[in-house]
Structures are given as C-alpha cells and as structure tokens.
Design a protein around this nucleic acid. Sequence first.
DNA 1: GATTTTTGTCCGAAAAGTCGGAAAATCACG
DNA 2: CGTGATTTTCCGACTTTTCGGACAAAAATC
Lengths: 205, 205
Amino acid sequence: MTTKVLIIEDDSALRSSIVQTLELEDLEPIPTSSFTQARRSIRSNFKGVVLSDIKMPDRDGFEVLNFVRARDPDLPVVLLTGYSDVPTAMRAMKEGAYDYLEKPCNPDRLIDTLRRALDHRSLVLENRAIRDELVDQQSVVEGGTLSEQLELHERKVIEQALAMENGKVSMAAKRLGIPRNTLYDHMTRLRIVAKAFRNSDTGIE
Amino acid sequence: MTTKVLIIEDDSALRSSIVQTLELEDLEPIPTSSFTQARRSIRSNFKGVVLSDIKMPDRDGFEVLNFVRARDPDLPVVLLTGYSDVPTAMRAMKEGAYDYLEKPCNPDRLIDTLRRALDHRSLVLENRAIRDELVDQQSVVEGGTLSEQLELHERKVIEQALAMENGKVSMAAKRLGIPRNTLYDHMTRLRIVAKAFRNSDTGIE
DNA sequence: GATTTTTGTCCGAAAAGTCGGAAAATCACG
DNA sequence: CGTGATTTTCCGACTTTTCGGACAAAAATC
C-alpha cells in the first residue's frame, strides 16, 4: 500500500501539525512549503498523493492541480480550502481535484480523506502494473527466427514438465508423451539439466 | 463506468430528493426503503455502490455494512449519519464504510462522495477483470503432448507473422527468417491458408 | 552389500523437416 | 487478353529429429 503524502503548505505551523497527524496514522508525510519545492516529487509513478493548500503566496493551488494532472491524471490531489469557501471548492472538484477539506479541518476527516485518496492511488498503480504484465504476456511473439521462437517455447514447456515432476526426466517424458531418450535429445540440444529441477520441492501434487 | 447507487433510506421524502439529485448528475439511483428490500441487489459483482441511512426503524445501518462487506469487501458503502454525530461516523469508518455524510447533506458533497465511491468500485471491478484475464493467459501449458504444444505455439507464431504481413507468405517468411518454401511446408502441415489473413486490413504499419 | 531401479549417454536406422529449383496457378494492370 | 509479378505446389537431395536398444554410472531398495 502506498502511504506517501506530499504536503504543500506554506504555513509552517499548520504543516507540522499535519505531519504529526499523519505520522500518528502511519502515513508518510513529505512536507514542502511551496509548489516549486514540491514539483520534483510529482511524477507519474509517484507512490502517494498530494495534499495542497489552495491559497499560497507565490503560486495558486490550481496551478498545482494542473501540473499534477499533466504529469498523471490519476494522481489524487486533495486541496485545503478556506472555511466554507464553497465556490472555490466546487471549482477545484470540477478541475479534477480528488477531494477538498475545509480549513481548519478535523484530523479524522483529514485521515479518512487521505486514506481514500491513497487507496485510489494504490488501485490505479496496481491496475497499471497488471496491465503491463498482461501486454507482456500477450505479445507471445516479438521477433526473431521461427526456430528461435519455437525453441523458446519448447524450453518453457519442457522446463515446466520437469518442474512438475521434480526433475524426473522419465516422468516428464511420459507426461509429454514422448520416449525418454527423445526428451534427453531435446534437453541436450537446449542445454537443460534435469538436476536443476530436483529437490526444489516445487512439484505439484 | 459504473453509475448505480443502491439507496437504502426509509424517509421517502429524503429518498426521492436523493434520487432527483443523482438523476440530475446522470447517475442511476436504485431507491429502496429498507435493508430487506435492498438485500437481493447486493452481490459481489454489483456494478455500483451503496448509500444507506444509518438509523432505520427495522435494521441498523451497521447491519447493512456488515452484510455488504460479507458479500464483497470492496463494495463501497456510504452512510448517512445524523448531524454532527461524530462518534457514530467514526465507528462507521472503522467498520469499513467508504465514507459518511452528515444529514442534511449538501448535494454537491453527496455527488462528489458518490462519484469517488463509484470510481473506486470501477477500479476494483476492472482490476478483477484484468486479473482473470491474466490467470487465463498464464497457463501457457495445460497438457497434451510436447509436439501438440509446440504445434499450437508454432501455429500462433506463423499466424501472427502472416497477420502482420497481411497474408503475404513471402514477407512472413522473411520476417520469420526462413525460406518461402519452408514456410509453405509448415503451413501445409498445419493447414494454414494465407488467404485467411489477407484483406482483413489488420496489418501493422 | 547385493539387487533393482533410474539416470544420462551413445548408436543407428527410420521418419520427418529443410530448402533450392522449377513449374503451375493466380493476381495485377494496362 | 497478354505480360510480368506473385503465390502455391511439387520434386529431390540434404540435414535433423525421432526413438528403440544398449550400457555404464548413480541412486534407491531391501
């Protein structure tokens, strides 16, 4: 689970208060006092979320929002708005903020909100990882000679059969429906050694 | 995107008000007046989220929560609590509610919260779908003779090569690093006809 | 420690696959 | 309808693979 929270807040008192609240909940606060300082952390593979004040001396919270969304539209940004500043909050949500909190905010609410944002982030990252795995596997064929590709697959099949039989060549041969000697031929050609599959106790059943 | 919101609310005035709010935002409210009425909709593959009142005449909102979590721990439940009933709200969050809203609630807040919950639900369902696909593909090798398995893969490789070259055998042969004739030999053996890969306009580049 | 089973390697004949050349069939195009 | 390019099939020599049998070495069983 991702637990990083990149905090952008110029009021140092509030900042350290937030840091403390997060640490009590086993989250990982990364406190910064300005957008410029925070920029470098904001990447598409950032394993956390952003918590930013919306009113800051140099830059606006909306700038943060746009920057983050440009880097990764699925990186949640939680904004801290002034008390009952509903229009600003609504605008923030419309522009893609994950959520907003009214200052001063209830610590529980803060944690709940960040937890949700982090959960969302985890799911998104997990999703991407699984997707990558999927496309890796789907491209059964990337390039190379036909024989190269077949050899690669042949190796996989034989190694799996050996693994399933704990490295017993004769058993693997039976499983593969070929005579023992033939399997030895294949193994010699592919430089597969049966010993490598023994003892490892990964045999199925 | 999933947009269903299963509403459990005994106050009919509030219920229809919620329904109206959701419909204005293109969400799909499923209004029910009691837990018993809502039960049958709650399944692990429910493509939506649950919005329930926490105080009801017959059953408690926590019962809903437990029931839903038993059916699917990743089905978000948003609870409606009485105004500033902080302890109940905190207990709800601890017991796994996705979020809570204080009654009477701001329509914008309601929509924001439900959108987040629905987003979460979509991600979870998507994740599961991709996972299923993954395990399907991971079983590269199920059984059968070595030659059967190799033949299967050989067919895949050749068909992909043909598809990439729009059914041009000579081009596919070049790509596979073997003479045309040899590829024809393979194709004859595997009963692959090149015509089947022409015209379909699926050629890459 | 003797015996039986299993492993890993080698041999050789039959079977299958490779691949160049060439002819037949088909397609493309003016 | 020809003409050239491409696809497809057929042939035959050459190479590789298959697979049963044999055998020494290692392991397991008694």
